[in-house]
């Protein structure tokens, strides 16, 4: 084999290897379908920072009623290769005062954890997230103080939510300003 031939073969092998790497995975196929079928209300928007990566994206929620009305809440979605057998990993990128979201952005939503099943789609997860802002749930909390606050006096909880959304302090913790 001449050196030119060797080079050609090398190039061919590389091309083949490259093609294999680009093989679309089951997770990508399923995610693509879910994203194509999203039918979100005007209060929610997705954003794909890298259009070539459909497995990592952002969701913005602007509740139009309830205690969190007027806020703009940002989440990141990260889908791994076991999707849809494993749920997407969802985090809130802001520090917010919410019984079901801790200060690190971890979200407590049943369908993202113990009640996940592969027939659920991304639309169901997003609607579930929005529901947390309409009906914060004081049982099974991630932020115990916020949950206690909501359980004891809803008025005080409401005040603290407004305070936190303005970027203020609640019980000596400062929160991110999330008002539009």
């Amino acid at each position: 084999m001449t050196s030119t031939q060797k080079q050609q073969q090398q190039a061919a092998n590389n091309a083949e290897g490259g093609a294999k790497k680009k093989k679309v995975t089951a997770a990508q196929l399923r995610a693509q379908k879910d994203i194509a079928e999203l039918s979100l209300p005007p209060t929610m928007r997705t954003h794909f920072p890298d259009p070539d990566d459909i497995l990592n994206f952002e969701l913005k929620i602007e509740p139009d009623e309830g205690i969190y009305k007027g806020g703009l809440f940002k989440f990141t979605f990260s889908i791994n290769n076991n999707f849809p057998h494993e749920p997407p990993k969802v985090r809130c990128t802001q520090k917010i005062y919410h019984p079901n979201i801790d200060l690190d952005g971890n979200v407590c939503l049943n369908i993202l954890r113990e009640d996940w099943k592969p027939v659920l789609n991304l639309n169901a997860v997003m609607v579930g997230l929005q529901f947390l802002f309409l009906e914060p749930n004081p049982s099974d909390p991630l932020n115990k103080e916020a949950a206690e606050d909501l359980r004891l006096t809803k008025e005080s909880f409401k005040r603290n939510v407004r305070q936190s959304m303005q970027g203020g302090f609640v019980k000596s913790v400062q929160f991110d300003r999330v008002l539009k």
Partner: peptide, 9 residues
């Protein structure tokens, strides 16, 4: 027209 609920194919 039915699809598998897991892979949606």
């Amino acid at each position: 027209d039915d699809v598998c609920g897991i892979c949606r194919v």
